[in-house]
Amino acid sequence: MFAEYTASELTSIFAMQGFAGLILFSVFVLMALGLAIIFGQMGVINMAHGEFMILGAYVTYLVSHLFADYMPESLYNSYFLIAMVLAFFVAGALGAFVEWAMIRHLYKRPLDTLLATWGLSLIMQQTYRTVFGAREVGVVLPDWLMGSVQLTDMIEIPINGIFVMILTVVITIGVAIMMQRSRLGKQTRAVVQNRPMAAAVGINTEKVDRLTFALGCGIAGIAGSAFTMIGSTGPTSGQLYIVDTFLVVVFGGAASLLGTVASAFTISQAQSTMEFFLSGSMAKVLTLLTVVGILMLRPEGLFTLKIRR
């Protein structure tokens, strides 16, 4: 299958597909980060995670319209930063509410959490459809995100892609530092590793649970906000990604952030490289099959934390 291409063409193809893979990788990482915190750390299955992401995307859409309608034109270029912060807080606040109203009653029944959050995702989807309509919406990018960088004759890289990738790196490092160094991160890990002892040394475990869940949802909101840079948003966009995202988290080893990043990289690169040579659906089938196959051989995932439960 490589015969009909010259060497330089092949290099370009791999570079371009590799880059497309990197954008997919960014989306996976941003979505999976929130899930890695909620599922990996707390063991809660949040099937509505995709919908929290879409919430962030809709917040960004609304903010961009507010800026376009009511703000001076010169400010439009900076709407994205405000939208992202707002998306984080809106999704986080909703997450905290959902944890309080629903999740906290179900910690002992993980399978039931799964069903309840699926119900939540249906309600959220229909809400989006009622409020924003069934059609997909997109935002107008600020000028500085338009266009692309020409590397060689054949390799061309869009600027919004680069921006999303830089954003991903910054957020990932931020989350990693926060989980390792901050008070909340330390408390979260303490609660995960040994809940009774964490409570015994004076950590308010319920509060930590709520903040952790809100944080995971907030990061999903940021992911959705970044998602508007590269694609349009519809009421069911979140559902498209949820299975992929869960596989990324499980494949990486649920409790390890590094594993999540590594598995997001593997899956996205495999998929986008194969997509060029096979049809898109076969590439996806092969990738998912490989992941499921590896998970059957190594259920604990790529990276594991050895902790006593």
Binding site: L115, A116, G119, L120, L122
Partner: peptide
Amino acid sequence: PELWLFAMGALFIGVVM
């Protein structure tokens, strides 16, 4: 038709909780 998904979602949550 637009109410069905709300009802279904509420059903999931209500039955489980």
